[in-house]
Nucleic acid binder design. Structure first.
Length: 301
RNA sequence: CGCGGGGUAGGGUAACGGUAACCCGUCAGGCUCAUAACCUGAAAAUUGGCGGUUCGAUUCCGCCCCCCGCAA
């Protein structure tokens, strides 16, 4: 079905974004020789073991998968030897949630490339997509860079600008950026492996950093009706749809409950909430929420 | 046995031992140039299921079914 790939590479990834990139690479005719991902973790209401999406993707295509809890880079370790024996031209990393030891990224002749969904040196770090959205930075882009010893610090191999009119839901934005990143990667990969593409040092003086998201970051101030505040709430709703989900607190029948906002619009400088999930309840329309929890016409504090 | 919330009229919420209330919607009538606004009235609930306690259970107890949140 798939023609043998002229380029032999190992793929490091663990999230949904990783899988979208794999899909696009596959369409462009690039299949990894092996995949490295993270171990399955117990999830769900009864802590059922859930397979991570990259593993699932690779297994359905009969691509060997490794999911080490730790990347053992010691010379002679089984993992490092395995990677060496794979004789890859290059390694590709996309949203792999661990830092890869320097001795491993140096294994392939053409080293290790990373797909990063921002215009580096801007938005380095763990949550670039969310940070871009929260900053309302509609002119953004994707970067292919060579990984060096510091996080998101390596030289740039290729970059492409991507702009949006208005923020879609996080998943959609993630998908867009993943596809753009994958297209760019597919475009430059042959040239990179052939050695005909020059890399360029990042301008480290312009670097900005994103931080890990905390659950409390999802708390909104919906009492403040100013356009700036409402805009901020809208951005939170869009950016945090997967996790932690933007929410506000609401007092009902004597207890404080958390109300998550799952869908909203931003119209005429105003936040229009469309769907919510009150704690312990199912998702419902905001109108229903107001009818039952508040009474007609009012807004929650 | 990881922690927790919940199943009440078409939708959402309340009552918490004496057969059910409120908001929205629906239907009828009225007001209005008009209306998704306002006024009046009406229909609509075996209170998830099965047992138990009780003179009497939506309300207390047990079991079962279904739904959801947290665990990054």
């Amino acid at each position: 079905m798939n023609p043998p790939s002229p380029i032999r590479f190992a793929y490091f990834g663990s999230s949904r974004l990783s899988v979208i990139i794999l899909d696009e690479l596959e369409k462009a005719g690039f299949l990894p020789a092996l995949a490295i991902t993270t171990p399955d973790k117990p999830k769900g209401r009864h802590l059922t073991l859930t397979q991570n999406p990259v593993k699932e993707w690779a297994l359905t295509r009969n691509i060997p998968v490794h999911d080490p809890a730790k990347l053992d880079s010691a010379p002679g370790s089984a993992f490092a030897e395995m990677l060496r024996a794979a004789k890859c031209d290059v390694f590709i990393v996309a949203s792999y949630s661990k830092i890869i030891p320097a001795s491993i990224i140096e294994i392939p002749a053409r080293k290790t490339l990373n797909v990063h969904p921002s215009l580096l040196p801007l938005y380095r770090g763990p949550a670039p997509l969310q940070a871009v959205m929260l900053d309302d930075a509609k002119n953004t882009g994707v970067t292919i860079m060579r990984i060096d010893e510091k996080v998101d610090h390596g030289p740039i191999v290729a970059q492409k600008e991507v702009a949006v009119e208005e923020w879609p839901a996080y998943e959609e934005f993630e998908e867009l950026m993943a596809r753009e990143g994958a297209h760019l990667l597919a475009e430059i990969l042959p040239g990179w492996v052939a050695g005909s593409i020059q890399e360029k040092e990042q301008d480290h003086s312009r670097a900005t950093f994103t931080k890990k998201i905390a659950k409390e970051d999802g708390l909104m101030d919906i009492a403040d009706a100013s356009p700036a505040s409402q805009r901020k709430n809208f951005l939170k709703i869009q950016a945090y749809r997967q996790w932690p989900v933007a929410y506000f607190m609401f007092e009902h029948s004597g207890k404080k409950i958390k109300v998550k906002v799952t869908r909203a619009l931003f119209l005429d400088d105003k936040l229009v909430i469309e769907r919510v999930i009150p704690e312990g309840k199912k998702e419902m329309s905001y109108a229903d929420f107001q009818n039952g929890f508040i009474g007609s016409g009012q807004s929650p504090e």
